[in-house]
Design a protein around this nucleic acid. Structure first.
Length: 429
RNA sequence: GCGGCCAUAGCUCAACUGGUUAGAGCGCCGGACUGUGACUCCGGAGGUUACCGGUUCGAUCCCGGUUGGCCGCCCCA
């Protein structure tokens, strides 16, 4: 017996029955983002490793220990993309888009890869839908982007989500805050948890969102990043809050929210969904402004702001909602006798050409078994084709939810079926 | 990367402290009803008990390893 081959750990198959949810979310994103003027881009899933090292940051966990990095046969160091912002920026630079238009709005969707310990809502191949706006440093751009996220989540009918907002300042004010924070945390070192004592040296900002109660109290009493913002950063943040309010977008100002990627300046935001099905994977969207990244990658000095939505987590929430996303056939064509199979196949073909969703059991078999299949398919109507129908040219549309069969000419099936009122949701007990 | 829990049919789960041929529900296939699904009844297929090794007269059960899944930490979407 040959060995069974299993899928790679942390990388999942999506089959019919579940894929419809993904398609629903993706279709909605394309439609809605298009309304906002965002165009879709597709970049390769593999990039030069240096792209991520220079943008995401060498010291981040993502680059430091989670990338799928390998050498190709030409000796190049390549990596499976762990996120989508850097590849999009690379494409933007490479195609000199800045010289063609002053403002560019892009979105993308597709798989990302991080070698991590798996959990609910966290996989090694996971999917993001992201958007990036290049060329506008104004707070209005941040606000428009967040409006798009909010409208997207609303359209998905997701409840219990909250938008967290913060500003990390820029190169003019962040260093002073950083120094002050480290100074303060050092003075409280003995009271911090073991993890935070380590973070103090590696990534002091991370102490701010430690779950430990003692650390939270210490962080809350420490220097507030928002109080260290320089005047331009302060003005930008205030402007953003005013515009969000004008848009009717509720947000929570959270001066202790930090993000794991190095490229952010000024605005950072997260959308948190509180649902038990997500466990600790409650962040469904994260984003922010990265005004310095383009230049850092050797491109033009172009400001940018973007976000990424975790599609896997959205799908988990939609599964929990119990909503149905599958669509059923309009008609099932059943064959009464073997001699009618070719005509049935031809009929099904014609009706599909006319736009109907038609199911048909190509194996034939007893009429009873075909009826069972028709029932299971969820088809609205079943049409039985046999010798009698072929000679008379007349058949019946049997409503699977119950009721009287509707006489129909074989030449008129699509028209007659479309004229039928939608099935009544109410059924007998 | 660290700590803990778990793995039996396609799915959800049984099988007293180690003891004959590993069961049920759902699903699937067929029949009762030979041109009509659902409800009911009857029957059938489907398992190397995740994998490898050990202890034992005997292992689904005990032990070790591997792989995979879940939870917390870390981190993030």
């Amino acid at each position: 017996m040959s060995q069974k081959i299993a899928g790679v750990k942390g990388m999942n198959d999506l089959l019919p029955g579940e894929i419809e949810i993904w398609q629903h979310v993706e279709a909605l994103a394309r439609e809605l983002f298009g309304r906002f003027g965002y165009g879709e881009v597709r970049t390769p899933m593999v990039e030069d490793t240096a792209l991520f090292v220079r943008s995401v940051g060498e010291e981040t966990d993502i680059v430091g220990k989670e990338m799928y990095t390998f050498e190709d046969k030409g000796g190049r160091s390549l990596s499976l993309r762990p996120e989508g912002t850097a590849p999009a920026a690379r494409a933007y630079i490479e195609h000199s888009v800045i010289n063609q238009e002053p403002i560019t709005r892009w979105f993308y969707m597709g798989p990302m890869f991080r070698y991590e310990r798996m959990k609910t809502g966290r996989y090694r191949q996971f999917y993001q839908i992201g958007a990036e706006a290049y060329g506008a440093k104004e707070a209005a751009q941040d606000a428009e982007l967040m409006d798009m996220v909010v409208q997207f989540l609303e359209a998905l009918e997701l409840k219990d989500v909250s938008l967290n907002l913060n500003s990390l300042g820029d190169e003019a004010c962040r260093p002073a805050y950083h120094t002050k924070l480290v100074e303060y945390l050092r003075s409280k070192r003995e009271s911090l948890c073991a993890d935070c004592q380590r973070r103090l040296e590696t990534n002091p900002l991370r102490v701010l969102d430690c779950k430990n109660e003692g650390c939270q109290a210490i962080a809350a009493a420490g220097p507030n990043v928002l109080e260290f913002l320089c005047e331009p950063c302060r003005a930008h943040f205030d402007d953003l809050k005013r515009k969000l309010t004008a848009l009717g977008i509720k947000f929570v100002e959270n001066p202790r929210m930090v993000r794991g990627l190095d490229y952010y300046t000024r605005t950072v935001f997260e959308v948190i969904a509180s649902h038990p099905a997500l466990g600790t994977a409650s962040t469904v969207c994260g984003g922010g402004r990265y005004d310095k990244m383009m230049k850092g990658l050797g491109g033009p000095d172009v400001p940018a702001v973007g976000f990424a939505i975790g599609l896997d987590r959205l799908v988990l929430l939609l599964k929990e909602s119990g909503r149905k996303f599958t669509s059923s056939p309009d008609l099932f064509v059943a064959v009464a006798d073997e001699g009618s199979q070719t005509d049935a196949l031809t009929l099904a073909s014609r009706l599909r050409r006319e736009g109907l969703r038609v199911d048909f059991d190509t194996r034939g078999g007893s009429l009873k078994s075909q009826m069972k299949r028709a029932d299971k398919s969820g088809a609205r109507f079943t049409l039985v084709l046999g010798e009698a129908e072929r000679t008379s040219g007349q058949a019946k549309l049997k409503p699977m939810a119950g009721g009287e069969p509707i006489p129909v000419a074989l030449d008129d099936v699509a028209k007659t079926l479309r004229a039928q009122p939608a099935a009544t949701p109410a059924g007998p007990a």
